[in-house]
Every structure is written in structure tokens, then in C-alpha cells.
Write a protein that binds this DNA or RNA. Sequence first.
DNA 1: CGCGGTGTTGAGACCTGTCAAGACGTGTGG
DNA 2: CCACACGTCTTGACAGGTCTCAACACCGCG
Lengths: 243, 243
Amino acid sequence: MPPSTIEPHLRKIYARDDISAEEEQVVRDLVSEVVTYEAHRVIARPWQDLNHSTLLLEGWMGRVRDMESGARQFTELTIAGDFVDLHSFTLKQLDHEIVTLTRSTVAIVPHERLKQLTIDHPHLTRIYWFMTNLDAVIHREWMVSLGRRSAVASMAHLFCEMLARLGVVGRADERGFEFPLNQSQLADCLGLTTVHVNRTLQDLRARKLVELRSQWLKIIDLPQLRQVAEFDPSYLYIHKRRR
Amino acid sequence: MPPSTIEPHLRKIYARDDISAEEEQVVRDLVSEVVTYEAHRVIARPWQDLNHSTLLLEGWMGRVRDMESGARQFTELTIAGDFVDLHSFTLKQLDHEIVTLTRSTVAIVPHERLKQLTIDHPHLTRIYWFMTNLDAVIHREWMVSLGRRSAVASMAHLFCEMLARLGVVGRADERGFEFPLNQSQLADCLGLTTVHVNRTLQDLRARKLVELRSQWLKIIDLPQLRQVAEFDPSYLYIHKRRR
DNA sequence: CGCGGTGTTGAGACCTGTCAAGACGTGTGG
DNA sequence: CCACACGTCTTGACAGGTCTCAACACCGCG
């Protein structure tokens, strides 16, 4: 496991904008403490009052909506460098759970410090505002998958998305990446059943696009995978632009 | 048609936080001009550079993702008082189209003024940041519909959502509201086909929950409708809280 | 060695999609 | 005032993707 530092978060920022050395220090000083959680823990429950946001340094976490029927829908997967719940700063309470998918190390960022940031650092404020807007962009892409893509295409799309996002923080290359979700969790991302996820995975494997074994996603034919997914990475806004 | 003013927007704000008289004036001064568009126009295309955001004063607009195959997915419906693309301020370009569903009057808000807002008015900045986070909350609710709800339930849920949101800006009561989408557009919101939307609408009508005729959604049995939808309005954050 | 979690398989049902045709309705032009 | 046209809504028959339920296999771990 790489050391748990704020570097991936800075890489995520620098992929979208430039910040000064002073601003970088402000970002580092947002963190009040660093905590490690075991895998499969619920870190925050819906409608609970929150006074800090959680920046994921290492591991995988997710946002899940639970339904009365027992059905679940993941609404986002978060990886090293992502804020898991930056939106809790303005929302104060979340509409979903925050869970760990693997053992995870996080940095705690008190909302009080974010509030001070909105007073003293308009540029960083715009960058963090951008980051939550980026979450919404990813949400929209998932909506397209859930609403309009076939099971194969949406699964392929998810793999392409994670490859691109993990690439930004140095956690993936074109051979593959660690993918810690089981088939049931994958089903809850894609709006499918476990059984169908299993068959879809076999389909992707039979087509010689990817293989998922023991938490590792092996990419066999990226160009074809992208084509099946109709994947266009533009929506991840991986380019610098003054915000 | 009610007069096109910024009042619905202020109502939307006041439903979530209080602002001072001075701040209210700042909000009013964000607007550089007011424009009216005909129905069924594309107002902004994906990846086009934008230097202003669009605040909807009157009418219905939407955000749509177009796919190569010709399939479409609406990702949000916007009504009087909503910013259609506040997120374009930090994104600079959008990942989707902006279209008018009805004749619409909008206020143009130059990004330059929003940038100045982030420098001079941290509280208003947090409120507008909240507003884009609210869009993301609605996105998550749609993801749940697209991924985990049946056709009947997600349609019922959409009607409940629009009732609640329109209520905030005084455009609906418990008898119903104007609903200008045709069945094909409704299908593109719900991730269904037109044919199935037609049958689902008949289902809701047979159950004596709602009737949709000539652009008017008549609500017959709201408690039952909510139950079918498993609708819980908390996610709309319709309560004041210091942001 | 047994156990719990996870992955795999089969058969059948069901929800939603596809395709195609026809009905309705409103505005327009002759 | 009628005829027509176009968009929209409706219907039927059938196909197909995904779900359900149940059983079984695999595997790491205590």
C-alpha cells in the first residue's frame, strides 16, 4: 500500500488547475487529523449532522443509497485523492451513507476550516466548488449508464472511468488496476442483480476485453473496451483551466 | 404566465437560508440581461465555452445527454427559480446540452460577476455552492430511480419531486401542476421507451393516482402516489439552515 | 475440516423493448 | 368549412434483456 499522504489529492487538483505554493500550504493545513478505518464500515449515515468533510488518502470508499426494500444503489466510488463528502460542507447532512470498501486512511477536514477558506481564498474555493461539480458530472454519466446503456456497456464504462480516474493519481496503468468491489457491490453500482453482473463479466471476458479476478481488473483490449462503452473521457475534465 | 422576475429564485434561496437585504441586492445585481427563448431550442451545446450562467425566471428547461445511437437521457429538469447551469461557472464547459421545454425567460449572469461574488461574498458563495450540491442530490435520487425503481415507481417519484420543487416557487398545489413534457421526453427522463411510458401512465391512471392530460398533471391521490414512489422529500433540503 | 463469503449455473418468469400500424387532435391552407 | 399534415398518443404481437429462485462450486481462513 502506498503511504497515505495528501499527494494524490494535490495531483487531482494540479490535473485541473494551478495553485500557488501558498495555496498548496493552505490545502495541507485543511487537515486536522488522519484516521484509518477498516473495510466495510459505515462512516456516515444519512441525515446525521456533520461538522467535517472526509478526504480519502488511501483505499476505496463509496456513497450508497439504501432503500426500504433492501435494494441499494451506489452513487459514486471514491479513490485516493477524492473528497468523499465535500458536499457535506454546504449540505450539513447527507442524503446517503458513506462506507469503506477497503481499509482506508482519511484526512479529516473540519467544516470550520472550509468556511474560513471561502472567506480567505476565493480561488481555492472555486477549485473545491469545481470538485463537487465534478462529482455531479460523474453522477450524470452514471445516469446515462443506468438509463440508456446495456449491462455490458455500462460495466465497460465503469471500468474505463475508474481507469482514467485512478490514472490521474497514479493508481493504474493500461494493464489494469486493483478493483476491490465484489460482484454484489458492482451490481449496486450498475443497477443490476448479482447474477447478471456475473454473466456480464463472463461476457466481457469472452470478448477478451477485461478479466476481473481476485480484486484485480486486468485490461486486455482497451480500445475495444472503450468502444463497447462508448467511453469519451472528456467528462472527467482532466485538463488545466483557470478556475 | 406569471411575470418573469427573480422572485422564484429568491424564494428558492429563502427556503434554505436567510440572506441580508444587502445580499439580496447583490443577487439581483448578478443579472446582466433578461432574454426569452422559444420552446424546443438548444441553448447551449456540450463543450462549448461559456462565459455566463443562465437563471431560469419562467418556463421549463432541461439538461440532456445525447448519445451517438440517438438515445437521450435527461439529467435534470429545471423550473422557475433554478439556475440551469450554475455549474458552468466552475466547469467552463458543459458535458450536456441545455434545452428549453417551453417558452422560457431567463436571466443572464456573467461568470465575471460570479467570480467577484466568490471574492466579496463568502456567504452567498456558500449558498450558490449549496445550490449546485442540491443539483447533485437530485441527480442521486434520479440514479436510484434509474437503477432500482420500477417504471411505475420512478414515474411516481418524478411527479412527487416536481410537485415539491414547484411548490417552493408557488407553481403547484396539491391538485396538480403544469407539466409540459411529452411522453417521449418523459421517457428520456426515466430511461424508458415512449411506448412503456404510455403504458405506465395508463397504469398510474388506472390506480387513480394521477392523470396527465394536455400538459397538466392532475393529482388524484397524493398519499398513495407518495407511497408507490417511496417518496421522502428530505432530499430536497427544504428547510433553513445557516450555510 | 468445516464454515462463511463469494462466485457460478440453470430454468423459467417478467418487465420492458421493438416494430409497426392506426387513432387522435390541432393548426394550416385551399 | 373541409382536407390534409404533422406531431403525439395508443394499441397489439412478439422479442429479448434482465430478474428470480435455487442449488452448487470454490476458496481462504480459523
